[in-house]
Amino acid sequence: MKVCFPNFGSLGIVLETLCRQQQISYVKPQENLEEALRVGTRLCPQSVCLPMKRLLGEFVMAAQQGADTALFLGGGGPCRFGYFAPMFQTILDDEKIHMRVWGLEAPAGNRALFLRDFSRLLGVNQAKALRLLLTGVQTLRALDNWEETRLTATALLGEEGTPPKERSAPNMALLQTLLAGWQRKWRPILRTAQKAQGAAPLRIGIIGDIYTTIDPAINQNLQLRLAEMGAVTRRSIRLSDHLLHLVFGNPRQNLAARPYLNRNIGGFARETIGAGEQMRRAGFDGLIQVYPLSCMPEIVADGILTDIRRKQGIPILRLVLDEHSAQAGLQTRLEAFVDMLKRRRMAG
């Protein structure tokens, strides 16, 4: 067995470390976004969203390097995201590419079945599989926290002040130790920097579909661009929290969304609304909603956000992403948005 996994924010680093630790052979995900999109676009249905095109492209390219098992973080329905795994499998079978697609998801909410499959994949017993799973989530959390610290450092200290980027380690425990050490060093530096600046930096909430908000290559380094303009950002979805919410739910966020949307309509619509409303109450200066063209749940959320903006007066910028690769358009919108938030603050 040789596994592959997609570029998916920090998930790739955790899966790579897990494979190393368990001595499972793996193929690193394709870095070249344009090449993956070229391959994926050729094989996918024309009207499907950007995430599916890129993921499929990455799997096909990994198969050319000998991978026979594809791991990815699957989604629940009721939107088409819930069918990504079977669709990948069908397309790969049609193309005579021998690869088993393995969605890291609980089939119909059956957690026991999930654990059984996960332990088979790793070739360990179920107790060990559960321990690895928990360590994985902890490691993801450390990575998520580190990413936030890094971006805040860029916002406060500029490019020169940015701390090192995360990287993979021989095992997950070592990776956690490394990141914890960095955090201890950098947190006080940032506190001092913030005090020295006087005025609090702009705070912008990034809400929307999981893949386009999380992966910097897909959203053209959205959070880094904002950090370079001096804005501190928070995302509605952090992978580590998301995995915990899958098991334990997120009642507080659902409550915030409730006046606007009281059920799961698929994808991340409820998360977008709930987190957006929570961020607004927390005094964020503005929100940016990001989603791939043709994403149904986010289109619904878009309409609801209009209502929130109208009633509450918080500025919301929409970014709809597709295969565009030029950066000038995105940069213009972000600059204008940050500029507007600054001037609004000055005007009181």
Partner: peptide
């Protein structure tokens, strides 16, 4: 409003 940009919208895709 009062000479300050309150919001803007720009075509996307």
């Amino acid at each position: 409003q009062n000479g300050v940009v309150q919001d803007f919208a720009m075509n996307t895709v």
